[in-house]
Each structure stands twice: as C-alpha cells, then as structure tokens.
Amino acid sequence: MLITCPYCGPRDVIEFTYQGDGNRQRPQPASQNLDAWNAYVYDRLNPAGDHNEIWQHSGGCRAHLRVVRNTLTHEISSTAFARGDHNSVARHRAEDKS
C-alpha cells in the first residue's frame, strides 16, 4: 500500500503508523462526561467502506495525516495533514506529482 504524504509524496505503508479512527472526538479536557470519554477511548466506527483515519508518517516527516481509505479495497481517496495549518505546505508536493 502506498500513502501519499502531503509533504514526502507517495511512500510505502511500512513508513507509517496507524493511529486509528479519525472520527473520534476528544471531550474537553475537564469534561467529566464518562460516556463521552468512553466513546472517545473505546468506541470505533469501523466501517466497511470509506474510513476517515489518522496515520503518522513516523518513518518520514512524522506528521499525522488524515486519510480516507476504503477498508474493503484499501484504495485511498484523500490524504491531508491532520494539522490543517500544514496543508498549504503540501501544495508543492502535490504539484510535483501532477
């Protein structure tokens, strides 16, 4: 599997660490809502189809990416930095590719 890191370009999956379901919402730090914490820590969407997930390019730029990947076919339809403010940096790489 290849994941196109917005900074590093397409790289082999071996360079990435899967960080799971990207739909999870962390409650406010001071929240005492145990249901919300439980949902955040333990519950997963786990769809059969497109999945919004977080990967870290741990063997590259170490940035975290938000990846939409199909869990039935492993096709990746989008990747972006999990940090929105880095996505402008990615432009250059995207242009390299095209």
Binding site: I54, Q56, R62, R83, G84, D85
Partner: peptide
C-alpha cells in the same frame, strides 16, 4: 515520543 506527537499534531495543534 509518538504519544506526544499525536497530541500536538491531532488534539492540540
């Protein structure tokens, strides 16, 4: 290290 990076990148950018 990964724990810290995750929080900085994803939770508290």
């Amino acid at each position: 290290m990964q724990h810290l990076e995750y929080f900085l990148d994803v939770i508290w950018p």
